[in-house]
Design a binder for these strands. Sequence first.
DNA 1: CCTGCTACCTGATGGC
DNA 2: TGCCATCAGGTAGCAG
Length: 276
Amino acid sequence: MPELPEVEAVLRTIRPFVEGRTIVRCRVLHPIAVRPSSGRGAKRVAAMLTRMLPGRTILRTERRGKYLALILDRGAIAMHFRLDGQLLWFDTAETKGHVDVALQFDHGTLGFVDPRHFGRFQLEDSIDQTPGIRDLGIDPLLSEFTAERFAELLAASARPLKIFLLDQNKVAGIGNIYSNEAMWHARLSPLRRAHDLNATEVRRLHKSIVDVLGRALECCLRPAPDFRDPNWWFQGLEKILRVYGREGRKCRRCGDRIARTAQGGRSTFWCKRCQK
DNA sequence: CCTGCTACCTGATGGC
DNA sequence: TGCCATCAGGTAGCAG
């Protein structure tokens, strides 16, 4: 469940399910989901979560970049969905299908689900001190994400624009889809060096990022995710996408064929004619 | 410090 | 149908 808009939509939708609720039981069905990034000790961590989480109350839910955090009365749960992770809600204590971690409340059970096991569910002392979150860059939905601040970040990097946009420690929350979309809207080549953009181009890209993420968020919220449906997914995103996944098809602006180029081992979709 | 490459996992899809 | 290659919305760790 990928990038900032999707995580934000999940956050807003899950909030009324869990805020103010006390965890009754925690089951770690696939310990790999709680494995620390050091790579060892999954079983031990699973046992600790099972022991420590019951009795704790979720005070509020927050987002940090693509992380979703459940702030507890003591400590916080940090979830990262990577490519395919998602949340499910069960009205009962039982869960069905693949669930990695089950947080049971008195009114139902929240499931952290990621069959691919890239995603992570971790208990931290302090959400903003945890590795991966501590160094996150500016959140593009907040007012502190200004064109001026963005210009400073770009000016300090010689990397290709696409790679720069994926760096969570610069601007937090943009992923492969919306980096492609933002560059297309701004008519900028993904191969351009970040520090080579002029002031006009920086403003164009800044506006494109804000617009693209905002439109995607609206799309993700209507209709809102239905966590009770094991097959829920965001509907209608494809209709707002202009370049992502459109290799070989016509550019919606100039009619040229959309190209696909590998950058940093990932696919960049762009129009070579109108993105300069 | 920055940069580029690889590993981590599983499932879906398409060509033969 | 089976098999293989390729692809996937992400990031940490490593070497240079």
